[in-house]
Structures are given as structure tokens and as C-alpha cells.
Write a protein that binds this DNA or RNA. Structure first.
Lengths: 226, 226
DNA sequence: CGATATTTGTGATATGTATCACATAGCCAC
DNA sequence: GTGGCTATGTGATACATATCACAAATATCG
């Protein structure tokens, strides 16, 4: 961990830009930065936490193994704030956060964070906007889970990586088949089979974790139809 | 619609209590109250809206028929704010809201609402808390959809009504079998069958929409095991 | 009140996906 | 390299649930 000047570090964040200068100095005094390698745990569910985590750079999965099985609830790409729900409510993390790619995270004291919300309406408004976006995405996720079949969900996942995360038709899947299944709520065998079918049908090219989307339009159709 | 003194009307809300007096007067000038019967539409998805809706009394379902099939995303019991996500983002409703029970709703101009957030940190903080709670609930919902089987989901739904909505083991189901299925992502026939099984096993008593939970512990187990 | 529409229950069948079993491939440690 | 570990692919089977078809019950409305 190292102390950092938050003026320079955090300015990518819509919310942080709204902090005025002496608030940023205060942030500097109560913020520590940590670099994570892929697969490292940022925080664990059921642990007590008094920090909000700001993801400055990287990719993180929010997950839980409440029911003995790991379930991936969401991926979060920088820049974003984690841990708001648990920490603001009762300071117990309701889920775990684990890095998928190299990630730079800032730990911000919850009291400082709360103070900013109370004192700085612009900052609060940005946070509210971000939470509202999350809510819409959550609705989308639960629609997908409730009414799409397995191939639609896999199509969804591939499009998500291509569009939201890597901005490219070709990418290295950061997940094992098992993890993909944990995310979309299907078994690892089904994931294998479906990726195999997509490959045979020339919708994608796959070679291990290497994926290229060959027919985005068709993949989109599969995603839509479920 | 009728103008109302918001001091008296809205004080049940944690968030509104934080509004100071002259803000409440401003709210009174930009707030209209509407009484809804069960089954009436408060707002429709894809419609443009410039209001935040505060549910003062009643029960509302948030739903969408994006994919030709109606899907119920969430129930919301008063007091609560609706419509934040869509309105704050781009002013288009991302979903519909329809009343399930007699409901009293206040329509608040979005600009006034935003002004309150910017000017009143306490108010903003309450909104952030509420949104955070929503997020945790959304995670719970997507866990349920992803890994529970139909009987676990139905058990869940019954426990939800008994505990969260009616605070009683006996209640009138405000949904048809079809709607229950739309909510939990299963077919109406399966809902019928499962309720029938629960009835035969003396876990519940059912007579049409009249439901009594006879063995809450067992129902809880079914919900847990999925 | 009767006629019609809607909701509900239930059996038979089809279908999708989990599960199991096992083979293969890739990877790391020694 | 060899041995053990994990990840992956693939077939056979089991199982849960959707779908279809129809009957019965209930609500709605003129």
C-alpha cells in the first residue's frame, strides 16, 4: 500500500471530478492504493469492511459461494466503485470481489466517503447515477437468466466480452468453461458443447481460451431469441 | 391529481425527512398525488418521463414485456421511490410499473428531485442507501433464478409474500398463477402443480388465491435447497 | 340469470440441460 | 522427461420443466 495524491489518481472518475480541492486532499490522507494480479481477492463476503473500493484500472468479478457453488453475479470494469451496498448498509460485505485482470484499487475510508456524499451534492449525484445504471443492468441480467436458454446466455456472454470489455471481435476469454457456467447459470459441459456448436457453425472461432466472433449478427439473433 | 402539502404527506420516507422546510414547500409546488386501483398502470416502459414517483402507500410491480412475454422484475412496497434509473439516466422508462394493491403515488418533477440531491446531502445519502439495498436484493434475485429449481422459487415467492409484504402466514395471493410464473420465470402449469404438491404435503393450504403457510420451516428448507 | 371469457388443474409428451463417466489435453513441479 | 493435477471435450442417461391438449372451475358482463 502507498499513499497517493488523489488529485491525479482519481480524476478519471466522474464522481471524483466533482470533489473540490480540499476534499481531494482529505481523500489523499484516507486512501490507499493496492495493485492486484489476476485471480487475487480484493475482499471476501461476510468479512467486515470499513472501506469503499474504487477500481481505477482493471477488471473484477463480484461473486458469492453462498450455496456451496460459486456464482458470479457481475463483472465490473474500471472505473467504478465497489462495495457500496454492503458497507453503506451494515459494513458486512455481501459478496466477494476477485480480480480477473491486473487491477489497481483504491481503498477509501467509509466515513470520508460518506462525508463527501453529505457535503458534495455533485459527487452524490454521480454516485446515484452509477447505482441507477447498475440497477438497469441487474434487471437485464435477471431477464436473461429467467427466460433465455443456455445457447442464448453463452451468446450473451461472448457479446458482452467483445463489446463491453475488450472492444474487439477477438479476445482471450478470461474465464474457464467452469467460470463461464458459474456466471451464466449453466454447467461447464453445456458451455463446452455450446461453444463447440458455435465453432462448427462458424459463428465463432475457438481455440482454448482464444475466441473470435465470426458472425456477430447471428450471435446477436441467438442472444435475442434465447 | 391534487396538490398536497408535502410536509405531512411524505414524512414517512427516510429520504424526505431529511428535506428542510423550504425544500418541502418547493416540493409541494412540484408534486402531484394520484390514487390508483389495483391493476392500473403508473407508467409504461419506453415512455418518456420527467418525474420521479414516490410510492406513499400500496404495492407495485415493476415489469417488462420486452420479449413479447411479460416478466415481473420486482415488487415494491411503500414507501419507496420508483423510476430513478430510467429518469435520471436518459428520461426514458426502462420498465413498466403497475399497481397490485390500492396505491397512492406522488409524482415529483425530476428537476426538483435533482436539485434536492445536489443541495441536501442527507437526502442524497438516503437515496444512495435505498439504491444500495436494491442492488443487494437484485443479486439475491439473480442467485435464485440462476440456481434454484421451480419448487424452490415458488417456496421463495410464498415466503416473500408472508414475510415482506403481508407479515402473516395467511394471505390472499395478489397474483394469478400466470403472474407468479412470470415473476419466478416458470410456466403457469408448473406453478399450479407445485402449489398442488405443497398443499398435498400439508406445507401450505391453498384455496384459489387464498394461501396459508402451514409449515414455514419446511418451506424455508425447500427454498434453501432449491 | 345465463352466456362468455378467463383462470386453473392435470395428464401425456417433447425438449433442454444436468449429471455421470470417461478420455484427452495441457500445465506445473520435481 | 515423468507423474500428478486441472481443464476440457463428448457420449449416454436421467430428470425437470415446458408445451400441448383439454376439462373444470370461476369470474365477468350484458
Amino acid at each position: 500500500m502507498q499513499k497517493t495524491l488523489c488529485q491525479s489518481c482519481i480524476l478519471q472518475s466522474d464522481a471524483a471530478i466533482k470533489l473540490i480541492k480540499n476534499q481531494l486532499n482529505e481523500l489523499t490522507d484516507h486512501c490507499s492504493r493496492v495493485e492486484f494480479k489476476p485471480g487475487e481477492i480484493i475482499f471476501k463476503e461476510n468479512a467486515i469492511s470499513t472501506n469503499v473500493v474504487y477500481i481505477q484500472r482493471g477488471l473484477v468479478k463480484i461473486h458469492t459461494d453462498n450455496f456451496s457453488k460459486d456464482r458470479i453475479l457481475r463483472l465490473t470494469k474500471a472505473p467504478s466503485y465497489l462495495c457500496l451496498p454492503g458497507v453503506l448498509g451494515d459494513s458486512i460485505n455481501r459478496f466477494s470481489a476477485t480480480t480477473i485482470e491486473p487491477t489497481l484499487a483504491c481503498f477509501i475510508d467509509i466515513h470520508v466517503f460518506k462525508k463527501f456524499i453529505l457535503e458534495n451534492g455533485d459527487f452524490a449525484y454521480q454516485i446515484i447515477l452509477a447505482l441507477s445504471q447498475n440497477e438497469i443492468k441487474s434487471f437485464q441480467v435477471s431477464l436473461n437468466l429467467a427466460q433465455k436458454q443456455a445457447n442464448g446466455r453463452v451468446a450473451d456472454a461472448l457479446l458482452y466480452f467483445a463489446r463491453e470489455i475488450y472492444n474487439s471481435q477477438a479476445f482471450m476469454l478470461p474465464f474457464s468453461r467452469q467460470e463461464l457456467g458459474d456466471w451464466m447459470g449453466i454447467s461447464r459441459e453445456s458451455v463446452s458443447r455450446i461453444l463447440g456448436e458455435f465453432h462448427s457453425a462458424h459463428i465463432i472461432y475457438q481455440n482454448g481460451k482464444e475466441i473470435t466472433i465470426l458472425n456477430e449478427e447471428l450471435l446477436e439473433q441467438i442472444s435475442q431469441k434465447g
